[in-house]
Design a binder for these strands. Structure first.
Lengths: 351, 351
DNA sequence: GTTAGCACTTGAGTGTTGTGAGTGCTAAAG
DNA sequence: CTTTAGCACTCACAACACTCAAGTGCTAAC
């Protein structure tokens, strides 16, 4: 357990280091701190903090910087002052959300842009995921003699489409037959069931009407995949350059590749779902993120909940040296705005 | 005019510098060059080349590096040896193109990826543009009680779509009326005429059937815009990091922002269309690209021609210090493959 | 418990010096 | 008249010593 003075000193060290990026020594800290306390005393206290591994030196005679454990302690116990978010920021968010969206994806994509702008870090988001998404609509629209567009709709109101080419003239009767089959077999089923059926029963049925069903099945599969793959968004990628510790291009490339790997990012953000309720914000500092490339970064994740339409996650990836209270406050406020925007948006489709 | 020996020396300097990135001196060059010629002679020749501003020093007593003018001379007069492209590369390209595409965009996007991979530089592409694109198809597909999807098709076979939400229940009669109006007024018209009519006559007509036509008109406008804006593609952005001269993040950010500015890139690539025929490859070196951010880069552009379906451009952005003959050869070969793939692709829609 | 004082450490910056790869020039050789 | 050897000169770069500011830990006095 730390004394109040030790806590104060730890906080001051973190503050100073966050601001300047340089280690701070006892004398400078004594000047900075308003309480009358000598540098020698601070040195003694620092020795204790260092013993508890909350701060560390860069070399024998350097000042101190917070350790990852120090940040952890700070985030868990001390970051209470600055939780109030600037009114101006909230207005900016609302203003920015105040437009017509035609897809949830647009809202989420814009969220990452906004979050990255507000924080100057990199923002990540996963769009709302329901446990049970079902296929609720299907259309085939002939566009010309050789082109057909397939449109799939889910019970969440998500729409994906893709055109495909057919070799020979296909009659509208044939298309209607295919639509009928899909309606009979797949509508109302959850997406994983749809995938399964699409591999087994459905091709047989369709082959009765369509001589070459491959193009159609491929397309259907493709569109189905879009529901799964377009769920992950990144904003402010370039901000990584500002605070990436290494200036070695190979390392930076690796980082960007990681950022593009939906699977990896998904894993990272989902890691401890148990914490992900509506009030918590999970903070992973340095090596707490289970990825070596990100050992100098911190990942703040917040899950948001839009009831029947599922839960999603927004996150901020920044340097370990970050103003946590400010950023956490902002992320929390943003979650609130985003949730209410989404609830509002979905309101249409829920009758 | 240069003597043969001077040309040889210039070529050797460029080769050496391209390989090592360091200035090369007379002695080292004499060792490298197979002909028996003393370093002193090379020094004399170098003095002449420097007088003609084809090579330059980094400081008073350094070796020589090619100047931009030197590269220009090299590209115009000397780069004749290595024009043959590796068979393997061509096979890679063909193999990579050997799949089913549903949109031209996919082909072009993949082209940039492939080109950037083959060269390890950054690749740019503009998809084929016809002077006279006309609207050839239009559909409205109701998806649910509150959602409608609008689909637009051009005479090039390009398809774009977007769903939009409507406040109140709209009957299929109303939708059909709107489709009829669009068919009467807009089908067969060129896109700019469509834009104009959409601003003037059409709203009046539609308002007779739809109480609030705003959502519909906005959507139509949006989709129309997609035809214009999705024309520019970039691949291998990250490769910029490998050869960007400055390691200052602000400068790199600016570069990436330039790369995202469709307008700027479009201008740069189109600059001298007169050269852009099917056999030429335009090479802009350093400050020949009219942009200060790119003064250490070279831009190779090649236009490709798919007959009635228009012309497009593919380009490579790399460091001025680049193996020009190899890269130019590759770009030329790639153009050929891309053209034939596209001709093949469009074959469907031309009956 | 707190503080002043002191000896010690370190990174960052600065000046000095040597070295290697280069140059231009001159005069002799081909 | 072209080519070459020789030579004095230049410059970037690395190595090294030196100084300085900002730290530290420790001890003894308050």
């Amino acid at each position: 357990m730390l004394t109040d003075r030790q806590k104060l000193i730890l906080q001051a060290i973190i503050l100073a280091y966050t601001e300047t990026g340089h280690a701070i020594g006892s004398k400078a800290l004594a000047d900075k701190l308003s309480m009358t306390i000598s540098s020698a005393t601070i040195r003694n206290e620092m020795a204790i903090l260092e013993e508890k591994a909350l701060i560390q030196k860069e070399h024998t005679s350097s000042g101190r910087i917070p350790s990852l454990a120090g940040y952890r302690y700070y985030v868990d116990n001390l970051k209470d002052i600055d939780m109030l978010v600037k009114k101006q920021d909230i207005l900016t968010i609302r203003d920015s959300f105040n437009q017509n969206y035609t897809k949830v994806d647009e809202i989420i994509a814009q969220s990452t842009n906004m979050l990255s702008q507000l924080t100057s870090y990199t923002a990540l988001a996963i769009k709302p995921e329901t446990i049970n998404t079902t296929l609720s609509g299907f259309r085939l629209v002939p566009l010309g003699s050789h082109q057909v567009m397939a449109i799939l709709v889910t019970n969440n109101g998500d729409v994906e489409s893709q055109q495909f080419a057919i070799n020979k003239e296909v009659t509208s009767e044939q298309l209607e037959a295919v639509v009928r089959i899909v309606n009979d077999q797949l509508i109302g089923k959850s997406l994983d069931v749809v995938v399964k059926k699409l591999a087994n029963e459905v091709p047989i049925l369709i082959n009765k009407y369509l001589s070459s069903s491959d193009a159609f099945l491929d397309t259907f599969d493709n569109v189905l995949n879009k529901f799964g793959t377009d769920q992950f968004f990144v904003g402010g990628r370039l901000n990584l350059l500002d605070f990436s510790s290494s200036d070695n291009p190979a390392a930076i490339k690796q980082l960007y590749e990681l950022l593009n790997s939906k699977k990896d990012m998904h894993n990272m953000m989902n890691f401890n779902d148990q914490e992900n309720d509506q009030t918590t914000i999970s903070v992973k500092i340095g090596d707490e993120i289970a990825n070596d490339l990100l050992k100098d970064y911190s990942l703040l994740t917040a899950s948001y909940d839009v009831g029947d339409h599922g839960k999603g996650i927004i996150a901020i990836l920044g340097p370990t040296r970050m103003p946590y209270s400010k950023t956490i406050g902002l992320l929390g406020a943003f979650r609130q705005e985003l949730t209410s925007k989404l609830v509002n948006y979905y309101h249409f489709y829920d009758e």
